[in-house]
Structures are given as C-alpha cells and as structure tokens.
C-alpha cells in the first residue's frame, strides 16, 4: 500500500496567539511549532497500515522552511520520505490554493491511499483534505475513527452526530482523521537517527509542474482579526452551607441568567 500523509506544521495548542501589526495575521516570534495533532493521527495510521500490509509512507507538506522539522519528526516516527513544497506563493494561499498545490504534487506520485487531518488547528478550515480528493477525482471519507482494508477496498467508520456511519471506498481514496483513531507513537532515538538519512525533497511550484497563475488570488481572505470578547471571572458563590450555596447558584441560573 503506497500511502501519502498530508501534514501541516501549526502552533502548539498551548501557544499564546497574538495579532500581528498588519491586523490580518498572527505574531509568529514566540510560537512553538508542532505537527498538527490530527495529522499525527494520520502519520500513525499510515504507519500501522504499512506495518500490516507493506508499502511506503510519504509525507507531503506545503509550508515554510521550518515545516521541514515537522516532516523530520514524522520520518523519525517511521515514515519513509518527505516532500516539502516551499514557495512564496504558498504563504499567500487560501485552503483551495493549498489543496491545488498539494494535488499537483501528489498526482505524479504513486499512491493508493491519502490520509489527512480533519482540520488544522491553526485556521480550523476543515477543508484541505477534502478539496485535495476533489482535485484528484478520488472519493473521500471524513472524520474517521476506524478503518479496515480488505479485498481492494477500504471500509471507514466515520463519526456523525450521535454515532457512526460505515462507508466503503475503492482505492485510491482519501480519508481524514478523528480523535479516537489511534494513539500516535513517539519518535524513538534510533528513529530520530534514521530519519536524518531519509529523503526530504524541497520543491518549488515549478518543480511540481504548476504555475502560480493556475492557483490565482485567494478567494477567501482575512479582512481583520480580532480577539474574542474577554470572559471575566464571575462570582464565586459562598455561603454557610452547601445547601445555601447550591440554592443560590440555582436561583441565579433560573432568575438572573434565565438558562434553566
């Protein structure tokens, strides 16, 4: 099974996020960059499939130079090779633009299966994986917590409100990950040593045979970023007994806040 994982480097979820002076992007100086948590599930699942079926795992990422570190981490977990598409055009793309670039990079590779995260926890777009599948003309199944491969098909358990739906797709196919799929492994020390020798190609748009004009201007643009309304700590309810405290809370929720 030839597997491709779409991987994005994002700020660690505990990072402080501030708005940059331009008002439409975030300050990046103090950020710790990590693999998008949903893409970690994707790497892990790809490795498990490879371990069971044979084949190879290729990591594809579009981003800046520093994204190479995230790819290296995936190689240390056990992936075989990495491709980083680094081009000034990438930085200016919306989700559809990134998907076009990734699809262009992938179409010349051999693949049976593509695994992407359901969303990247920076822009939270929930879009790139599905759009890549569309551009490659292959089926996609999103929010997958379990997959089974048999008889040349993949069966995926997808989470929906209140339960799961099981769908089957022929290869090649793409699915996106959901929490519950697996517990990603850590890169081992020997893994880290081996990763240093694994191929990591850095490519420009022309290397993958796509022209900036084919991508065009972003169709969705950030006009302004703002911070959400700050929540202030409210009232700590105190009283003589747990009964009086509980009663005061319930009265407040019923009378004042009108939520019960």
């Amino acid at each position: 099974m030839e597997i491709i994982v779409l991987l994005k480097q994002v700020p660690a979820t505990e990072s402080f996020i501030g708005i940059a002076n331009d008002g439409v992007s975030i300050k990046t100086e103090a950020i710790k960059w990590v693999i998008n948590p949903y893409d970690e599930f994707a790497v892990e699942e790809a490795l498990r499939i490879k371990e069971a079926q044979g084949g190879s795992v290729t990591i594809v990422s579009a981003g800046q130079e520093r994204a190479a570190e995230a790819i290296r981490t995936a190689l240390a977990m056990g992936a075989d090779k990495g491709i980083l598409i680094k081009d000034p055009v990438v930085d200016n793309c919306d989700a559809l633009g990134i998907a076009r670039i990734l699809a262009a990079a992938i179409k010349d590779l051999q693949f049976d299966l593509i695994i992407a995260g359901q969303r990247a926890v920076d822009d939270d777009n929930f879009q790139v994986g599905t759009a890549v599948a569309e551009y490659l003309g292959i089926p996609n199944i999103s929010l997958v917590i379990k997959e089974e491969i048999a008889d040349g098909k993949i069966k995926c358990h997808r989470t929906v409100e209140g339960g799961t739906v099981v769908l089957e797709a022929p290869f090649p196919a793409l699915f996106t990950t959901q929490r519950g799929l697996n517990e990603p492994r850590y890169a081992s020390l020997p893994g880290i040593m081996k990763a240093k020798k694994k191929p990591l190609d850095i490519k420009s748009l022309s290397d993958i045979g796509i022209d900036a004009s084919e991508i065009g201007e972003p169709k969705s643009k950030v006009l302004a970023m703002k911070l959400p309304p700050e929540r202030k700590g409210g009232k700590i309810i105190k009283g003589d007994s747990s009964h009086s405290i509980a009663a005061e809370l319930v009265n407040a929720l019923h009378g004042e806040a009108k939520v019960i």
């Binding site: 700020p11 703002k226 911070l227």
Partner: peptide, 11 residues
C-alpha cells in the same frame, strides 16, 4: 481560528 483564540472576519 486557532481554537477560538482569534476571530477572523473573512471576505
């Protein structure tokens, strides 16, 4: 965006 740490107005 960013897990709700930012709100973005999009065109």
């Amino acid at each position: 965006m960013y897990g709700g740490k930012i709100l973005a107005d999009m065109a």
